[in-house]
Write a protein that binds this DNA or RNA. Structure first.
Length: 183
DNA sequence: CATGGGATTGACT
DNA sequence: GTCAATCCCATGC
């Protein structure tokens, strides 16, 4: 599953004609206190146990939607959280939704990303492999991927399942490699 | 039925 | 660097 997270880096994700290159992902699996599926199968987590290639959209802190891709066969709960994109397509529409911002602020975070693309809870359980979603395998050469501890969660945050495109300015705040202050 | 937690962001000191 | 906002869902009484 972590292979999936790694391979997603560099792929192009589009939603209704807006999107860009995936530059940051995070993997979650059932045996992981930070994963929603950890509590077992419920109405909320049903998607995570379902077939791969579907979206799991979760609203965090009542304000921000987080986009996940189900990454394991039916029966196994695992997902890859899409944390950041390098916007390449539909910049105008993203700016309409997010306001006038530098490119690197448009999708540099899970909540920003969903807002920019117009993804909300309505997209929960949506099939990522069909309209209005579009995933392009790889838009060129495979970028260098950096693995690091996960960010912004309170449980098992130290598991090294965070994948970033090396040196990309489009990843969210604590960038690996920079001596930036802890969150 | 009521309560608490959660994978975040943005504004203010 | 620190703090508050805000909604859905799972759990507990």
């Amino acid at each position: 599953m972590h292979e999936v997270a790694r391979e997603l880096i560099g792929c192009t994700l589009l939603f209704e004609g807006c999107g860009g290159i995936v530059v940051e992902t995070e993997s979650y699996e059932a045996d992981d206190p930070a994963c929603h599926a950890y509590v077992g199968l419920t109405d909320r987590t049903r998607v995570l146990f379902g077939p791969p290639g579907h979206a799991y959209v979760y609203l965090s802190y009542g304000i921000h939607s987080l986009l996940n891709a189900v990454a394991e066969p039916e029966g196994q709960a695992a997902a890859v959280l899409i944390r950041a994109l390098q916007p390449t397509t539909g910049l105008e529409r993203m700016r309409e939704r997010r306001g006038e911002r530098p490119d690197q602020d448009l999708c540099s975070g899970p909540g920003k990303l969903t807002e920019a693309l117009g993804i909300g809870l309505e997209q929960n359980e949506a099939d990522l492999c069909s309209e209005p979603f579009l995933i392009a395998p790889l838009a060129g050469e495979r970028p260098e991927v950096v693995v690091g501890p996960r960010i912004g969660i309170t449980k098992a945050a130290d598991r090294p399942w965070r994948f970033c495109a090396a040196g990309s300015p489009y990843v969210s705040r604590p960038r690996p490699g920079t001596g930036a202050s802890r969150r």
